[in-house]
């Protein structure tokens, strides 16, 4: 049992490595274009609303905390608390996606598309029609898009885990799936910890 737990956990960590390397491509693209066009990137971080990004950061950090608390609870076989924390995590994740949706739709309404279709208008976005702005927004959309997909996948898994906990599948002797889901969710949080300042602040 412990052997199996150890193996699963190691497998999860290795999976997280592949996730990190997957995102690394985007971070490299970001860095390369930032080094080439620092003034553009400086200017364009202003095009994103740091209040929305900041709110999302807090929400995700909160969800990370509640996931950690759910593991803490199941280790003490407190299934009720575990389910509660998992549900709070889900609510946080949903809030994150709602804000993301608002951000995306506002941009699309103002012609801020990734790449060739980039044609910003409206008093907030028009000033950002500078050379290499399409690259910034392409990177923004791809990075946050892939991250968003990870959040959605995470929500699905957490919902499933919450249901299984409620059905009594886990206790302090066996909670591997909760632990692995937690690791994944923390990684999603870590990616956002980097995306927020890189895209919204600097």
């Amino acid at each position: 049992m412990d052997q199996q737990f150890d193996a699963s956990k190691m497998g999860m960590w290795i999976f997280l490595v592949t996730e990190v390397l997957l995102f690394s491509g985007m971070f490299v693209a970001y860095t390369v274009y930032r080094v080439w066009h620092p003034e553009t990137f400086d200017l364009l971080s202003g095009a994103l609303d740091w209040r929305l990004g900041g709110f999302n950061t807090l929400v995700l950090l909160g969800s990370s905390f509640t996931v950690a608390m759910s593991i803490h609870s199941i280790q003490k076989s407190d299934k009720k608390a575990t389910v509660m924390y998992l549900v709070i995590t889900l609510i946080c994740a949903a809030a994150f996606m709602v804000v993301k949706y608002i951000e995306y739709t506002t941009k699309f309404e103002h012609g801020v598309f990734p790449g060739a279709h980039f044609a910003p208008h409206g008093e907030h976005y028009a000033p950002f029609d500078v050379p290499y702005a399409p690259q910034f927004f392409s990177i923004y959309f791809v990075m946050t898009g892939i991250h968003g997909v990870h959040v959605l996948v995470g929500m699905g898994v957490i919902a499933w885990i919450a249901i299984r906990t409620a059905k009594g599948h886990f206790d302090s002797q066996y909670y591997t799936p909760i632990e692995l889901t937690g690791l994944y969710w923390h990684l999603v949080d870590i990616i956002w910890i980097f995306l927020f300042p890189l895209l919204y602040l600097i």
């Binding site: 956990k9 190691m10 997280l16 490595v17 390397l21 690394s24 491509g25 971070f27 490299v28």
Partner: peptide
């Protein structure tokens, strides 16, 4: 946790830096 897992994380950080620095 098991130290092997910490090593695994260290490795991913190392290879991300290699990717970044050598591209730069």
């Amino acid at each position: 946790d098991n130290k092997v897992n910490a090593l695994v994380i260290g490795l991913s950080a190392l290879f991300v830096s290699i990717f970044l620095i050598f591209t730069l």
